[in-house]
Design a protein around this nucleic acid. Structure first.
Lengths: 197, 197
DNA sequence: CGCTGACCATACGGTCGAGTATGGTGTTGG
DNA sequence: CCAACACCATACTCGACCGTATGGTCAGCG
């Protein structure tokens, strides 16, 4: 009764929980099993408590979802801005972007999961914002490389579609799993194809 | 064995139903609202009957899902083979492939919906087969254009990822909807980027 | 004509998960 | 030390669906 069974992220030895703990737990669940897997009772059991606790912190399940997704949006937006935006040369910036997404594809599990839950009204606006931000980033880089407005827009759309599809094929479908060096070669191939010299 | 009309969501005539009608109805629902929206009672109401009818044709909801998905697999596989495979020149074949998927994106709604339901054990093997078949088609075309085995595999993967991502961004996310001529230009851009001269 | 079987309606039972009601327990400030 | 509050448990209700049981109707043979 005093031992809290841990989730994927190790931190839950505190006997009492806060709203942030629930949000993080929800995000873990979303990343591993999708939005639909976020059920109040199962999440409560996973955190070592019961639903009685949950409904003290949140009025409803939707409220938890909203809080969790908003939290994720802030995290991912900040990270994007501070890690790739500072790179001056547009080609180097794009290359870095591609290499990152290729290597740590797992960290994009939440984005991929939310992509599968767009019928849910909660996810739509957030995904629209996040996607738009990233697209703008791509368009800007391509424009700095000398492309016209239209060409840059199309190329950005193509690149981002390749990213989204890559996540789907890698995370959802079995797909012949690429190993590290194969992945490396694939990423370089993509860079060569989508970043003109 | 031909049956009544019931093409798309249209109120059906007072005729009796067959298993095929239920399967087609399920496919329509999948295309518009996803696999999760296939509920026995609501589908029955949509077809103008009650569940009593359903359980005469199918033993369970899963059986309907399996039948519907299998039916779709056959349709899409046959269509793919007879419409693009015959084209001799690999570049022309690829171009035709890209143009098709660009123009009638709506007809790929089921593929996109099933992509979002891969956690369901029913969809996995079907999607694995369909995806593999299409990937093979791409790889073969690229090989015929003189690429090495590795390069062709990477390029095929990139192209297919772009296809899958395109579906997601177009069908699920709002995304600045492309109009006909814009779409045309985008498709040509993709062709230029992914089919080397 | 009357029987048979395909097709359908109605009513009921069972499960699962969200949300509510209410009371209990540990921590903390006055 | 003892209220007050934050956090949690237990035991419900309620609605959405799946699946079952059983009886009704219409078409087409024999």
């Amino acid at each position: 009764m005093l031992h809290a069974v841990t989730s994927t992220s190790e931190k839950t030895e505190r006997t009492r929980l806060s709203a942030a703990d629930w949000e993080q737990g929800a995000l873990d669940l979303i990343a591993t099993h999708g939005v639909g897997a976020v059920a109040v009772e199962s999440l409560a059991k996973q955190l070592g408590v019961t639903k009685g606790s949950f409904y003290w912190h949140f009025p409803t399940r939707e409220a938890l979802l909203k809080a969790a997704i908003d939290r994720w949006e802030k995290q991912t937006t900040d990270k994007f801005i501070e890690e790739v935006a500072p790179i001056a040369d547009p080609r180097a910036r794009l290359r870095e972007l591609f290499r990152r997404t290729g290597h740590e594809a797992k960290s994009h599990a939440i984005y991929s999961a939310l992509l599968r839950a767009l019928d849910h009204p909660m996810a739509r606006p957030v995904m629209a914002r996040v996607t738009q931000q990233r697209m703008d980033l791509l368009v800007e880089a391509y424009r700095q490389m000398g492309m016209t407005k239209e060409t840059a827009a199309y190329r950005a759309r193509l690149a981002y579609a390749a990213y989204v599809g890559f996540l789907q094929l890698t995370l959802q479908v079995g797909m012949p799993r690429l190993e590290h060096d194969e992945m490396e070669a694939y990423v370089e191939h993509v860079i060569e194809a989508l970043i003109p010299a």
